[in-house]
Each structure stands twice: as C-alpha cells, then as structure tokens.
Amino acid sequence: MKGHPEEGLLQAYLDGEVSESEHVRVAGHLMGCAACNRTLDELGGLAAIAGSALAALETRRPDVEAARWRVRREAATRRRRAEATGWGAGLRRRVAVAASFFLLFGVGVAAAMPGSPLRSWWDAREPAGSPVVSAASAPEDAAGPTEVGVGLELRDGALDVAFSAVPAGVGIEVTLVDGDRAAVFAPEGAHFETGSGRIHVEVGTVRVEAGSVRVEIPRNSINGVVRVNEAIYLEVVAGDLSFPGPPPSTTGDVIRFEVPAAGTPGGTDG
C-alpha cells in the first residue's frame, strides 16, 4: 500500500466491509503505522459515542398487533380501489367496503387506531345514538393548544363541509383518512355550526396559523363537498374526487388548497 489508507477505507476495515485482499493490505499497513492506528482508535471511539448517544433517543413502544391490522386493512382497501373500474363498479364496491368497515371497526376500534389526532378524544364522545356531532378542544400534544376540532359521522356516506370568511392566503388541508368519520379542525374562536352530515365553519377574524384549518374525510366517502367562501374546492361524486376550485397540491393522502385573493373564484368574501 502506497502511503496511508484513506479514512473511509479504515472505517470500512473497522466495520468489516472490506474485501479479503484489502483487509490483508490494511492490516499489514497498520502493523507499522502509528498514525493510522490513532485514526482507527479515533474512529472506534466515534462509533461508540454515536452508539451511546443514539441509544438515548427513546421511542414509544409500538402496538405491533394494531399496526399489523391497520397495514392489512389499508392494503386491502387500496387493492379494492385499484380493482374497481368505472362508475357503477366503483360505487358498489365503495359501498361494500364502507359497510364492511362499519362492521369491523365499530365505535372505539377505529378511534383507537394510531395516526389520527382524533384518537385520544373520540372516546370521550357521546355514545352511539346520541347527537351525531360533538366538539372538543383537541388535546395539546396532538394538534397544538389553539385548535378546535369537530367530528362528524357520515350520513349514507355523504358529507358537506363549508368554510366561510376565510382570508386570502390561508391554506386548507384535506386529508383522506380511514374509518367512517370526518373531522374539521380550525383555530379556536372559529364559529362551528353542525347538522346531519354537515359542518359549517366561519373562520372570520381569528388568527389563522399555517396548517390549522384542516379537514379529515374518510377515503370511502361516497358523496361530498368541501366549500370555501361559497366555491366548491373539492367534490366527491360516487367516491371519485374532483377539484373544481383552485388547483390543489397533493402529497400522498394530503390535499392542500390556498385561498386566493378576492375577486377570483373561491377567493376572499366581498
């Protein structure tokens, strides 16, 4: 070996990631080179520091069983969705899927599913049979302390969400979620009005932080609209999504709109 081996090669040597011939060469060099031995020691020390520091990063112990169920269910939903073609087939299948969801994931089970900020306060809702709608402050650790959420059960898969007095520039985030419940989150102080399958939120003059106007709609919704300042931003017809309002940006299951300025369709009121 001409000169000292590069640091990367010493690191690979340390990690057992070199070929046999490289191993022989590096080992041979190390026999007579104090400088490289020092580097090797240093690399070993750095690995130990990294190991013990990273071990301090505690992580919540996952519920493996619930996670496995969720994965299987999600994979099955997507398979069915991919299989469904055309309007009629899509609708029928969606109804079937929604029905089986209801049977499998009755009240409580769906709420216990991880991944939704709703899960910790669904349980606190009125039992089935009482008013469809409930409002509660979202728990601080889930959604920030200044947010209020309203949950809504779909009526025959239908849903109507309307926002009014939303200032220009505010982002509205729609997330497709599992289960059969919709939810709307808005800054504290917004005025909520609810009815069967319907939520109306007057955002008004409350301070709107980015990302704090959010809608969660079940991915199995059959029919529905999300309206902003009287313009339809999102429409679900027979389970298919369309966006007649301002063009959204989409990342996975998250669809984002920005309220345009006054004078443009869907823009600020007045």
Partner: peptide, 14 residues
C-alpha cells in the same frame, strides 16, 4: 463511498 461518508457523519455527530 459509504466508509468515507460514515466516518465524516460520525465525526460531525461526535
């Protein structure tokens, strides 16, 4: 290049 990058990353982290 992983050996080089890893050594560098660990050094920065340390």
């Amino acid at each position: 290049s992983v050996g080089t990058l890893l050594a560098r990353a660990r050094r920065r982290f340390g």
